[in-house]
Computed example of a mutant assay.
Amino acid sequence: MVTERRKTREIRVGSVRIGGDNPVVVQSMTNTDTRDVEATVEQIRQLAEAGCEIVRVAVLNEGAAWAIGPIRNQTGMPLIADIHFDHRLAIMALEAGADGLRINPGNIGGKKNVDAVVDAARARGASIRVGVNSGSVEKALLEKYCGPTPEAMVESALGHVRMLEERGFHDIKISLKSSSVLHTIDAYRLLAGRCDYPLHIGVTEAGTLLRGAVKSSVGLGILLWQGIGDTLRISLTDDPVKEMAVAWELLRALGLRYRGPEIISCPTCGRTEIGLINLAEEVERRLEGVTDSFKVAVMGCVVNGPGEAREADIGVAGGRDKGIIFRKGEIVKTVKGGARLLEAFMEELDSFLEERRKDR
């Protein structure tokens, strides 16, 4: 069982509530040139369809800052402007319609600049995420702690946070990211005991699809299981839309949130007499975009399949010369030969979904 969620203060990013009693929120970041409004809006649309709830966009220059205006006009997704060093870009992005900033106040040029950014955020009703990566820890802290240790990252983050608190600003979220899974876990655990701000969790530079999914799921899974984390991002060197599938499967595995069908399938063995891998992949492909939450089983044995997957709402199992379709372990259809098994199952699945929706 997941440990009781850490109680944090509530903030908002646009229409999305974060922290408090609210569920863990799924976030991503576009990899388009923000100045390309059409491409950025299209990617945000794809992310929204895949389950993204907050999106961050890179703001490298004035053109990118002002592009937030037309992007905001074409999407209802809460937008966070990612700013590094230049406080003017933060103010421009807020004036253009950004709902939040990702910026470290200690890196934007002194008291006057911090005052200006805080004033703009407060006027807009925007939140600020203080984000410390292991590669961005201040030199003095690196020397004090002999490297970008979890302790160094936490002290860095709290130093930035104090600059906002001194100005009476508390709509803050914090992230501490390292490419080391263990450092990431230790840093968030340490920070969770020292403040009540909501935490955005992630493993940075996690890698390509397989490696990034594994590293992120291990690190974030441990933190979420311990009740730590209010928003999350699965960072992949890939299409950001793919981050959504990993994020939602992770939340489902921990029983925290559910979106779309859960697909279970056996790992194949020497008794498997059908192309089970292709069958499972095709069922998964055809269910993309379905947001209803239910359990589907794809099994390779007609003898044990229904029994092993009896908790599935609907399932299919195949043998050499026949296949069966079942609901809650009870056989509802037998299909001779393997050629029509997939289509017969999809027909039954369509009927299942239609019945389910009528009962609502």
Rank of each mutant, 00 (worst) to 15 (best):
197 Y>H: 14
169 F>N: 08
212 G>S: 08
200 H>D: 14
34 T>S: 14
291 T>Y: 06
106 G>V: 06
332 V>L: 13
15 S>V: 10
298 V>N: 07
222 I>V: 15
320 R>T: 11
257 R>E: 14
176 L>W: 01
80 I>C: 04
325 I>S: 09
236 L>D: 02
291 T>R: 13
109 G>D: 08
231 T>E: 04
319 G>Q: 08
232 L>W: 04
176 L>K: 05
145 Y>L: 01
45 R>I: 01
88 R>G: 02
157 A>D: 07
322 K>D: 06
291 T>V: 12
301 C>Q: 10
72 R>H: 13
87 H>S: 15
75 T>K: 07
103 I>T: 00
258 Y>M: 09
189 R>W: 09
331 I>F: 13
257 R>N: 06
117 V>D: 05
193 G>T: 10
275 G>E: 15
4 E>Q: 15
105 P>N: 12
253 A>G: 13
84 H>M: 12
142 L>T: 00
101 L>E: 07
263 I>T: 11
325 I>G: 07
32 T>L: 13
319 G>K: 07
280 A>V: 15
314 I>L: 09
207 G>D: 06
357 R>K: 14
167 R>E: 14
53 E>H: 06
57 V>Y: 00
31 N>F: 10
262 E>A: 12
43 Q>M: 15
205 E>I: 07
135 G>W: 07
352 F>A: 07
123 A>P: 01
223 L>T: 07
142 L>G: 01
241 V>H: 08
202 G>P: 06
79 L>H: 04
39 A>T: 06
72 R>I: 00
50 A>H: 03
284 E>W: 07
211 R>Q: 14
173 K>N: 07
175 S>D: 04
54 I>E: 03
154 V>S: 03
99 D>M: 09
302 V>P: 15
306 P>Q: 12
349 L>S: 03
224 L>M: 09
83 I>K: 00
260 G>D: 08
67 A>G: 05
267 P>E: 14
58 A>Y: 01
240 P>I: 02
195 C>S: 15
214 V>F: 12
325 I>A: 06
66 W>K: 12
236 L>P: 01
276 L>A: 11
169 F>E: 10
182 L>I: 11
89 L>W: 05
72 R>T: 03
87 H>V: 05
202 G>F: 04
36 D>Y: 10
57 V>S: 03
41 V>N: 02
148 P>W: 01
306 P>A: 08
353 L>G: 09
131 G>F: 00
36 D>L: 13
247 A>W: 03
64 A>F: 01
